[in-house]
Each structure stands twice: as C-alpha cells, then as structure tokens.
Design a protein around this nucleic acid. Structure first.
Lengths: 240, 240
DNA sequence: CGGGATGTTGATGGCAGTCAAGCTCGGTGG
DNA sequence: CCACCGAGCTTGACTGCCATCAACATCCCG
C-alpha cells in the first residue's frame, strides 16, 4: 500500500516535473524514484533570499527546478567570491558534510525540490543510479571549478570578461554557432564582478571596451548583450 | 580458482599497502578489493615526469602511494595554474570523461597504483563502498577548489602566502596546535607561485616580509620554514 | 671549487582597485 | 502623460599593488 502510494506520488510529482530530464533524479525510476519523490518538498525562493548560510548546520540538498542561484564563499572581512552559478536541473548542496561551507542565494525568483540531507544520503545508498549520476555531476563541477581557478589566478580583466561572454553564448544556444547572437546577462554587474574576481567598475570598463572594438552592443540597461562577432570575443578571451 | 588467485593478489598487493588506510581503496575489502587489486598496476614517476597531459585521451585513474604531484590547467599562451596538489593516499583522475582536461605532473619521485579508467569505472559499479568513498572525496575536492577560488579571486599576496603556510602547518601536524613548529615546503617557489596565482618574486618578497615580522625564519635554501608564531600567520591570512 | 639551478632583492611600469561624480532606465505617483 | 526618484550602470581621476625585467646571492652537486 505504502509503495503504491509512493509510486503515485512519484508519478504526479516527478514524472511530469519540468526538470525530469535534466536533474539528478532523471537517472532513476521505479521504486527508487518513488523513495526520492517521497522525501522531496517544493520550496520557492524570492530573488535575494538565502537558502543556506556558510557555517550553519548542513541540513538540505536540492534540485533547481526554475531560477538562478549563486554559491558564494566569503572572507572574514566580507569580500565575496561567487564559486558557482546554479541553473534549472542543477544539484544543490554537499552530502556527507555536517556543516555548510558555502552560502547559497537566489539571484532570481526560484523554485527548488528540497531533500533533507541525511535522508537524501540514505536514498543515495539505495539507488545506485542516483549515486552514479551525482558522482558524474560532482566530477564535472570539480572540473568547472578548476577551469575557473585558472581564470582567477592567471587571466587579466579583458580575458575574464570576454571569456564570460563566450560562456554565456554557449549556454544560450543549443550548439548552433552563429557568428552573432543576442544573449541576456542573467546577473547584475555586481554579481558578474564577484564571479570574475573583479570590481564592478572594471567589468563595466571592459564591456565598453568590447563595445568600442565592435564586438558587442549593450541594451536593456546593459542587461542584454548583442554579440556581433564571437570570433573577436574568443580571440580576446584567449590572446596569443 | 581465478577468484582465489585474485584474493591472494589482493592480500599480497593491497592488504599491506602503505596507503591501505588512507586511499580510496581503503573503504572496500573482500572480493571487491580483489577485483580492484586485479586491475591495479604500480608505476614509478621521476620528479618532473608527466602522468597525463591535458587534451590527451583519458585512459587512467590512480591512487598516490608515495610522492607529491601537481594538477595543472594552462592557458593558450602558456600560463599555468596549479589547481590541486596530490599526496599519498589521494585519488588521481577523472572517471566518466573521455578526455583529460588537466595535466598531472610528479613534483617528487612518486609511486602510483594505476587503474585503466574504463575498467575502474566498471569496478565502481560493482563496489558500492568504492563509489561512495570516491563521491565523498570528490565532494571534498570540490569544496577545496571553491575555497581556493575565494583566495585566487579576492585575497591579496600577503593573505595568500600566509594562508598557504597555515595550511602547511595543518598538514604537517596531526592536530597538535603548537604555537611554533618547523615545516618543510614540499614545492619550489615557482610551484608555490603557480599554486597561489602569484609570481615567484612576489612570493619571495612576502616570505621575507613574514621574516621581518618575526613570524617565520627560513632555512635549507628557503625549503624549510620555522614558523615561530602561527597566530601572527593566521592573523595575516585573515585580516580585519 | 666552479657552474648551474633556485631563490632573493631592487627599480620601474601597468593594470586594476578605490573614491567620486554623472548617467540611464524602469517604476511610481501626481 | 510626465516629472521625479532611486537603483544599477558608466565614466573619470588617482593610487597602489603586483608583474616585469634585471642583477645579485645562495645552495647543491659534480
């Protein structure tokens, strides 16, 4: 009876979920999905609202259903580094850790599927497909983090900003490599600066520089960018 | 017969291995360990020798038995960032990826236990304990990488160098918090600079600055550091 | 002892941070 | 409909930190 109820729940909640194909739960089905579905609860966050604070007890994991969130680390004197951006389908949280080490904040109104951490870990042990998928994703995240360490440690401001725009283009399209396209910047200048390890002013100056080079034009108060020539951007992102 | 042979192999190769307790294989035993043991081969690397090149086919994973290795990412114009250091017991490689994205180089003469990647992935599916342990480690690595993104993006040279020395102290001792202790720097100034996203000269200057502040003294051509007061170091690493 | 590699110290310049003023755009209310 | 307001973005002037280039010191090893 219970299992049948769980399956029903899984059917209604998960099988028609907006991120069924892309989230970590996409790799599992049947009773495993039912178990996971059973511990998941939806939660909305308003823009600017914090999901977890660094230093607090690590109580939850989640999947992003809609919206954009930032993962940040901060120094004692209040400087902030965005160490990751989360989009629909991305996994949130750090299983196996008693304490949260990063702060997670919604950048836009967001919708999450939340799992209590310890129960999620238990499901992880029972559903091999889920554990495998999470391992894959964590490996990818680690690789992304390391690529970004290269940027933060070695690249100049121009390379960082140009590279960021190239990444935006790649995210925007599904593989179509148009020479020019319009992308909207999903974050404020301040967040862009925190992401790139620069200041707002430096980011702004680099963008006007790109405008002067005829690589881009800015609209919607700088929140939408028409990339006129991706080749120029790519060249500036990787000089020599 | 084959299984018994494998068990014997596991006994002789793994059960008395120097990193039996600390490596990723420490979490498994019995037939799983036998399977893993069966695909593992020892390999020595001389200092400076490269294990894997970024861009090459991703053919292997490994455990570090002895020695120190660096994981590096590089820009097109040849700038290098050390994105991770590997010590005895650490796991090397990126399962589930067809291509190596990072270069792994031995900093000292090293001894590895190498697994062909695809066979390692197969074992991963059969030994839940191994997969779980690898997930835990990857989560920790991701967290380390993110902490370091904070350093590379936000901290000044003095904070980076002082923080590096504090980390060295924590690695050196097993929890004993002496106010002063001698640690040896396992890497050259050049590697230290690449690790911290600075130049050799800046690292050197910061060290002499710490010497002037009476926080440390240098010996053995700067390769051994007597930390006279960790409190000073900690304070410089986290100002305000 | 001598030579090469590694580390330190010095002089200089450029890039990005800081502080401060002005601008743009979207929203609100008269 | 338009004037106003405030948040976010841009631009400008200046400073300071760290990279660069270059010389020198030190250590290790033959």
């Amino acid at each position: 009876m219970w299992n049948i109820h769980a399956m029903m729940t899984a059917n209604s909640r998960c099988l028609d979920c907006a991120v069924r194909e892309t989230a970590v739960c996409g790799g599992i089905d049947g009773s495993d999905l039912a178990t996971l579905s059973d511990i998941g609860r939806r939660r909305q966050l308003a823009a600017g609202q914090v999901l977890t604070w660094a230093g607090d007890a690590n109580l939850l994991c989640a999947s992003v259903v809609t919206g954009i969130l930032k993962v940040t680390a901060s120094t004692a004197n209040g400087r902030e580094q965005i160490v990751g951006l989360l989009f629909a389908g991305d996994f949130v949280g750090q299983p196996f850790s008693e304490e949260s080490t990063m702060t997670v904040t919604a950048l836009t109104a967001s919708d999450l599927c939340i799992y209590p951490r310890e129960r999620f870990e238990r499901v992880l042990g029972e559903a091999p497909g889920l554990e495998r998928e999470l391992l894959r994703r964590t490996m990818r995240s680690l690789n992304d983090a390391r690529e970004r360490m290269l940027t933060l440690g070695q690249r100049g401001a121009q390379e960082r900003v140009a590279g960021f725009l190239v990444d935006l283009c790649e995210r925007a399209e599904g593989g179509i490599s148009e020479r020019s396209l319009t992308v909207d910047v999903p974050v404020s200048r301040g967040d862009m600066a925190d992401y790139l390890g620069l200041t707002i002013e430096t980011v702004s100056r680099q963008l006007t520089r790109l405008k002067a080079l005829d690589a881009i034009t800015l609209t919607r108060a700088g929140r939408s960018i028409l990339v006129k020539d991706r080749m120029i951007l790519a060249a500036l992102a990787n000089p020599d």
